[in-house]
Design a protein around this nucleic acid. Sequence first.
RNA 1: GGACCUGUGGUGCAGCUCGGAGUGCACGCCGCCCUGUCAAGGCGGAGGUCGCGGGUUCAAAUCCCGUCAGGUCCGCCA
Length: 579
Amino acid sequence: MTNPYESTSLRDLLCGSVTRLDIGKRVSVCGWVAKRREHGEHLAFVDLRDRSGLVQCVVPGSVDVRSEYVIRVSGTVTARPEGTVNDKLATGEVELTDCVVEVLSAAEPPPFQLDERSEVDELIRLRYRYVDLRREKMQHNLRLRAKVNATLRAAMDRQGFCEIETPLLWAPTPEGAREFVVPSRLHPGDFYVLPQSPQIAKQLMMVGGFDRYYQIARCLRDEDLRADRQFEFTQMDIEASFVTQEDIFRFVSEAVLDAAEMATGERPPTIERMTWSDALDLYGTDKPDLRFGMVLQNLSAAFATTEVKAFSAPVVKAMRVPGGADFTRSRLDTLTEQAKALGAKGLAWFRVTADGLDSPLARFLNDAEAAAIAAVDGAQVGDLILIVADEYELACKVLGALRLVLGAPPVSQGPHHYVWITDFPMFEGVDEDGYLQAAHHPFTMPNLEDIDLIDTDPLKVRSQSYDLVLNGWELGSGSVRIHRGDIQSKIFTALGISDEVAESRFGFLLGAFKYGAPPHAGFAFGIDRLTAIFAGEDNIREVIAFPKTQSGADVMTGAPKQITERQTRELRLKFAPKA
RNA sequence: GGACCUGUGGUGCAGCUCGGAGUGCACGCCGCCCUGUCAAGGCGGAGGUCGCGGGUUCAAAUCCCGUCAGGUCCGCCA
């Protein structure tokens, strides 16, 4: 049906909007030639495609168009003759007849076929992205993304949040991710950086009295790319004052679950919670995929006094692989190699058979040890038990990685299982100078119950920070921020940041806090990742119009490129020879 | 910085293990035929630096070394 948002001076309605209700009307549609089928000089079919779909146009006579020509077709909406209805096509009950075709733009044959019959190499898709974007999947994914954005905005607006833009040209703050730098023309030798996130800006908004801020913010990090990481990515960035972690959970849940309901038609009833230490202990990661079991078990007690050398370690962790007893020896060898690549000294495996455990190590076990292994996670005959004995965190992480290799369903499958991960450690390890390293960022509020541990056992200090995880993807993270100078000083001292350094890097923030900083907390989550999961894509490039390759190249524009001599002169840049 | 996988007409593949003429399949493209197709059909045709460089060999798409590009992962991503 025609609607005022679809009709233009050139067209009356979209190809995919033609329905039985339009029968008898003379209409014009515009689009790209998806397919032409000629039947001699008296009859030709043209499938016309626009963003909404396809419609078949019947031309009385031959027609001089080729694939991807841009044309305008005027024809009469007609019910298809009996026996020619195409139920594979949304518009398959109707067609345009007595069509007049006007070529708006001729086109060379496309560099690849736009139907979905075979996967096209991504490099070629990216080189001709403007063609790739015509494909139904890309149209769907980018429109889904737009609807995710709109839904999130509506949810934040409804909750009283104010959308505020913050600068892209910002001051260097050499903490955390590597920053993209921008040379200043007016101040030669000085640089702006592109923000890795609007973290400090949004905290300043709190001091500025905008007690509920949000922004769909572009973040830029000059770090190596991955399937779920691009240089530039988009976050729903949130900060609020006079709140606790609980309030942030409520705000974010409302927005995320609205988006989930929009995208999937189903609203998850709740978002579960799990502490960071439970996540590591049970799933071997801080971003557990809760769509499936294979929970890690601790067998340390059973092996406390073991004679088996391979199991004499701080911790013995085990995982059951349902039905894994039929893995071939070479598959088990591959798993062992993967475990070693992740840092394990080895991987022990035990097939659970009707005759007991089958393993090269089986004969070294005493009865109690064998019984403990055979009982892992309710093991049945036909299962496989994998064991890593090592330092606690390493054993957990190795098995956690193997758990994903062996059990994780494809992104497009299974329920959407959201979980808040809470009580992250405040610090993780020490840097080369012996100072503690912040696990989140240096403005993260420690759990006040643990504040005395900063001096005695700092690695045990929990922070008031939290992640939101969906099906094994880290969607985002946030924290309660420090708004008190005394606590901030204590943290800076622990991190080895002197007063002078703190002043030079964050002086404007610390200065602002002297003028009345409300208690505040915030969160940010990745819209690329959220949309990718909604779209069933295992790669965020599929929900980004013009993504970069893993080496950071844009194969369409050729970026990064050299700049002109005039540009280097104006910026007073000189380049060292390539090493 | 590292590990692994991939690279063959415009596109997607097979060929590589075990060297023997650029061999094959599907789609697309070009021409002709065709009045109800919709993965249209029939006949004919064009199209190749087997990513690039080097080596081994009488002979390399195939074996070896290097390199480039793409992908997945580790490191990195407060």
